[in-house]
Nucleic acid binder design. Structure first.
Length: 497
RNA sequence: GGCCCUAUCGUCUAGAGGCCUAGGACGCCGCCCUCUCACGGCGGUAACGCGGGUUCGACUCCCGCUGGGGCUACCA
């Protein structure tokens, strides 16, 4: 049987290096065995999923040099490849489970469920649906449904015994059924949850090997059970380690740049980033050069060399590799072409020109005026930040608030950025003019520069986040306690507006 | 709190009972090259978390502890 793997990102934010990591492993494994690799979009979360995010993810993976045999952009024989377009399929399978008595309708309110969980936790129990709606007679269920009560569909889960999950890399993982929750399979909006959609799609798309993040280990029994209920053959399971921050916690943008777009903006070469992820995905044997192409990674790929412990994303090593790509991997022409594409892409250059042209008297003024567009972290000093009217506390609060609110921004555009910064001034009870100054310093490196919002938009969310974090570090990163207090500032603002 | 995963230099890792006085890569330090810097070359620093077993022998197998991580949603 032909090996078929997939990567199934959820389009709920900026493209993440973790997605690329999982995609790379799935790609290498499939291609190493002469199989197929496909991409599926898991956008069943209507609230958080966006089309912008989806295309950003696809673009990023393409930029890295990854390609797929089937996917939402290119189609294929098992489509559609976007879960939001497969609702009818899931509805049918949910109905089948209902008919077979493997699932049931649940009318419990969020409040009741919350109360139940609090009680369970207090008594040292695993959090698990207590089965109330399982006790209703058919006519009771029909009555509630007819009355228009919202409901979800949950899967039935055995009360006793253990579920043996077979992981091709980790061996057998045993989890007691009583610690497995009666998972919601279909939300009250009629859309499936991950668990149902994932199992149905993997089966229909003939996936043979599911290689996914370690965070899914604990819900694997639910998937095993669903395959059993449907009478389908289980694909092989391989749980991949999670990439980590230097402090070993799960890689997060709060602590580290996690966006593929960030590495793009910083001038890393796609091959270098992909190569680096490959180093974390599959150890290179001694005597082999660590610098390798995708084809070489495919060639050398071995399941048993996937690490089990979560590797720290070590930017220093990425930097070294990228340096080699820059000086060994490119001839003079290619180097120039890359620099041109990175720094002087036509639209970007046009925007920068628009900002700079009115503000210069000699073309030689250009360098210092717009240099910050072509830099990573800026060498900001506390003295420079302190030149305005805000004291350290106010500046730190402003930066921290900005970090939070800017992350929550759906669209990274001038308009949204402006609103966020103005609201921060309000929340702090300061004049916007005074609040703006430290932002100019943090973002552009100078209190006087080209317009701030445009600069921020052009720089991109990830680079802005890094610079704000850098400025905050210079003044002193807020303590846990300060952060808790400051969160209220943001909340008050939200209520007021 | 409950359940699960995991554990070799600061970091990524090799190691599948004797080949280990534990190897490689990044980082760091030193030397060389050199108009500076970088590159490059050479050398150095640095690890088997702890305690019990099993065995003639354990970094390698088993158990416990500890550390780290994940999950615990009508998010994925």
């Amino acid at each position: 049987m032909k090996v078929r793997t997939r990567v199934a990102p959820s389009p709920t934010g900026d493209p993440h290096v973790g997605t690329a990591y999982v995609a790379l492993i799935n790609y290498c494994f499939a291609k190493h065995h002469g199989g197929e690799f496909l991409l599926r979009i898991e956008d069943t979360d209507q609230v958080r999923s966006t089309r912008e995010s989806e295309s950003a993810i696809l673009d990023s993976l393409h930029w890295l040099g990854l390609s797929w045999d089937e996917g939402p952009d290119i189609g294929g024989p098992h489509g559609p490849y976007r879960q939001s377009e497969r609702s009818e399929i899931y509805r049918r399978y949910v109905q089948q489970l209902l008919d077979d008595g493997h699932a049931f309708k649940c009318f419990c309110t969020p409040a009741r469920l919350e109360e139940m969980r609090v009680a369970q936790r207090a008594s040292g129990q695993a959090s698990r649906y207590d089965g109330l709606c399982l006790t209703y007679a058919p006519d009771e269920i029909a009555r509630r449904e007819a009355a228009g009560e919202p409901f979800v569909v949950r899967m039935k889960v055995p009360d006793d015994g253990v579920c043996a999950v077979q992981d091709e890399r980790r061996g057998t993982i045993e989890i007691e059924w009583k610690s497995v929750d009666m998972q919601v399979l279909m939300k009250s909006d009629g859309l499936p949850t991950y668990h149902l959609a994932n199992v149905v799609d993997d089966h229909l798309m003939e996936i043979t090997h599911v290689m996914r993040g370690e965070e899914w280990v604990s819900s694997a029994p639910k998937h095993v059970l669903l395959y059993r209920y449907f009478g389908w053959e289980m694909p092989k399971l391989i749980h991949l380690p999670l990439l980590r921050n230097p402090d070993k916690s799960k890689l997060s943008k709060r602590k580290n740049p996690t966006g593929i777009l960030f590495y793009q903006a910083m001038g890393y070469l796609p091959g270098a980033l992909l190569n680096f992820l490959g180093l974390l995905a599959n150890s290179v044997g001694e005597g082999h050069d660590e610098m390798m192409s995708l084809a070489q990674m495919v060639e050398r790929f071995a399941l048993e060399h996937i690490p089990l412990g979560g590797p720290v994303f070590d930017v220093a090593k990425l930097d070294w590799l990228n340096g080699r790509y820059l000086r060994e991997g490119l001839d003079r022409e290619a180097f120039i072409a890359n620099v041109q594409a990175w720094a002087f892409a036509p639209e970007r250059l046009a925007r920068i020109a628009e900002l700079a042209q009115p503000r210069i008297e000699r073309m030689s003024d250009l360098g210092s005026l717009v240099a910050f567009f072509f830099a990573g972290r800026l060498p900001i000093t506390a003295e420079l930040l302190r030149g305005g009217k805000l004291d350290d506390l106010a500046m730190r609060q402003a930066f921290q608030l900005a970090l939070w609110e800017l992350d929550a921004l759906r669209e990274w555009k001038v308009a949204g950025i402006e609103i966020v910064l103005k609201q921060i001034a309000d929340a702090l009870g300061k004049k916007f003019r005074d609040v703006a100054r430290p932002f100019y310093v943090a973002i552009t490196g100078s209190p006087t520069s080209v317009p701030l919002y445009d600069s921020m938009e052009l720089l991109g969310r990830d680079v802005v986040r890094e610079r704000l974090r850098g400025a905050l570090d210079v003044l002193g990163a807020p303590s846990k306690r300060e952060q808790d207090e400051w969160k209220a500032l943001g909340a008050q603002r939200a209520e007021a507006s």
